[in-house]
Simulated scan of single mutants.
Amino acid sequence: MTIPLIATDLDRTMIFSEAAMGPEQFGRLDLRCVEIHEDAPLSYMTADAVNMLGNLAATAPVVPVTTRTPKQYKRIELPGSPFRYAVVSSGGRIITDGADDKRWRTQIDAQLSDAGADLDTVVAELTSRIDRSWVKKLRIADDLFCYIVVHTERQPAGFIAEWTGWCAERGWTVSQQGRKIYAQPATVTKSAALAEVRRRLIDDGALDAYAPVLAAGDGLLDADMLEAADRGIRPAHGELHELGFHREHVRVTATAGALAGEEILSWFHAAIPGTGAA
Rank of each mutant, 00 (worst) to 15 (best):
A99F: 05
A99T: 10
D100E: 13
D101G: 01
K102W: 05
K102Q: 09
R103V: 09
R103I: 07
R103F: 08
R103M: 08
R103Y: 04
W104S: 11
R105I: 00
T106V: 04
Q107R: 07
Q107N: 06
I108M: 06
D109R: 10
D109G: 01
D109M: 12
A110M: 08
Q111D: 10
Q111F: 00
L112T: 05
L112A: 07
L112S: 03
S113N: 01
S113F: 08
D114T: 14
D114F: 12
A115H: 15
A115R: 13
G116A: 13
A117R: 03
D118M: 11
D118C: 12
D118E: 04
D118W: 06
D118S: 03
D120L: 08
V122L: 07
V122W: 01
A124H: 11
A124Q: 12
E125I: 04
L126Q: 05
L126T: 12
L126M: 14
T127S: 15
T127C: 11
S128R: 12
R129I: 14
R129C: 15
R129V: 15
R129W: 15
I130S: 08
I130A: 03
I130Q: 06
D131W: 11
R132I: 13
S133W: 09
W134V: 02
V135Y: 05
V135S: 15
K136E: 13
K136N: 13
K136Y: 14
K137Q: 14
K137H: 11
L138E: 09
R139M: 09
I140D: 00
I140S: 00
A141P: 08
D142R: 01
D142T: 08
D143Q: 11
D143A: 11
L144T: 02
C146K: 02
C146Q: 02
C146N: 02
C146T: 14
Y147K: 03
Y147N: 08
I148K: 04
I148E: 08
I148D: 05
V150H: 13
T152F: 06
T152C: 10
E153C: 01
E153F: 02
R154M: 13
R154I: 02
P156I: 09
P156Q: 04
A157K: 12
A157P: 01
G158Q: 07
G158E: 04
G158K: 03
F159K: 03
I160F: 13
I160G: 08
A161N: 11
E162G: 06
E162A: 15
W163L: 11
W163M: 10
W166R: 02
W166H: 01
C167S: 07
C167R: 00
C167M: 08
A168G: 09
E169Q: 14
R170L: 15
G171A: 09
G171E: 02
